[in-house]
Write a protein that binds this DNA or RNA. Structure first.
Lengths: 229, 229
DNA sequence: CGGTCGGTTGAAGCGCATCAATCCAAGTGG
DNA sequence: CCACTTGGATTGATGCGCTTCAACCGACCG
């Protein structure tokens, strides 16, 4: 996805006072109610947005009216970096969320002024491209069951760490969002989840609350090469 | 596609002697026979490669042994820019081709030394991300027929211009490459092409030689919003 | 002439979409 | 407090699209 994880400069702190992180930190947090849009597809891309809390989804309306969810954005993730003149996607809040906005001019100025930051920014953008590629390949060549398993693993990795027995995965977004993200229907997402539950791979405490029972099998379903049953 | 089109600085020529284009132009052209690999997936990414002539395909072997074609590279396209430590894809010649190699160090040095170039390079990378996103969405949400039509349109736009009646599209790559690129089987690609021919949208002078008969219909099949039948 | 490889066409089966019904939890109003 | 409503999640039944397996065709080559 093109969502960028918040940069970590802990290992090699920059010699300049202005970092991207501090830039965002200096901005006020703007609340966005669940279901509300933070930015609109087609609007002029004058600012970059970082999620402070909650979760947003980046989405686009396709030519035929269908909706495509491009990614889910959690705390630290940014959106709008890759936009050219206008935003390519809308960003709507899945849950109540908080965001910070930074004008692109400001961001550009920071990058201009601190040469140390540029390689990091460049590497980040590059990594985003790689991640998008990866996701792209996975989704394009996998079956619906594999996509769902893959999604669960990705959500676990992002917010809880490497899948382990008993680990809880929270899915704050409705099934329809997951479906539009994976390129399948809501019913198929349900069936895949049900199948995973029936096979003892996961258990469902509720629609939004998944518990990993057999991490090995889950990874195997997701198409991980090194997964052991 | 993460392949980057060759930059055009014609409109605003750089004030520095060293441009990315001139950097590549200063390197010798290395011939690559059809079927041979120019770079290998997993190899250390020490250099960036630009196609001088012919066509290459960027591909990857997936965990389950299937092959995924990530993109096709024509003259001016680059590969290896987005790689981190090691190359994520192999690049094999579809036809006899010529390539130029530039060490990444050198490229980085040029970017460091000429501030004018950086926005352009950044914009290019950004555009590549957008294009990849676009392709990703299209392929994920379209049917096999739409994918094939879309591919034909993309090939036409890239090497011949906006689809027009009588325009010839050359497909130097075998059907298997197209199939692995679109995420469908060879047979499906064939059937879709046959269907387009039967409907008078295209005609086939040979497997690699397509002529557009009804550009409007072709665009409509590709899922273009403004297409007129 | 036989052999191989890429392309095309045909027949059968599976996977996912579609349509439809049901279930469940959370509101909402009497 | 309970009947009613509502939206999301789930399950079931059916159809279509693509894959799979198989055969055939044509070009190229030894």
């Amino acid at each position: 996805m093109y969502a960028l994880k918040s940069p970590r400069f802990g290992a090699t702190p920059p010699r300049h006072a202005w970092t991207i992180e501090s830039l965002f930190a200096s901005r006020p947090v703007e609340p966005v109610g669940a279901g509300c849009a933070a930015i609109w597809e087609g609007d002029p891309a004058t600012e970059v947005l970082q999620v402070a809390s909650g979760m947003l989804r980046a989405q686009r309306i396709l030519f035929d009216g269908r909706r495509a969810v491009v990614g889910f954005l959690g705390p630290g993730d940014m959106i709008g970096l890759c936009s050219a003149e206008t935003h390519l996607h809308s960003a709507e809040a899945v849950t109540d969320a908080g965001i910070r906005r930074v004008p692109r001019r400001m961001l550009r100025a920071v990058l201009e002024r601190s040469p140390d930051l540029r390689p990091a920014a460049f590497a980040q953008l590059r990594d985003a491209v790689c991640a998008a590629q990866e996701q792209f390949l996975v989704l394009l060549h996998q079956s619906a069951d594999e996509r769902v398993a893959n999604f669960l693993v990705a959500m676990a990795r992002r917010y809880a760490g490497e899948p382990a027995r008993g680990m809880e995965i929270l899915l704050p977004m409705p099934r329809a969002d997951i479906a539009d993200y994976l390129g399948v229907t809501v019913e198929t997402v349900c069936r895949s989840m049900t199948k995973l539950r029936a096979q003892g791979v996961i258990s469902l405490l509720g629609p939004a609350h998944v518990v990993i029972e057999r991490p090995g099998r889950l990874l195997a379903r997701a198409g991980e090469p090194s997964a052991v049953a």
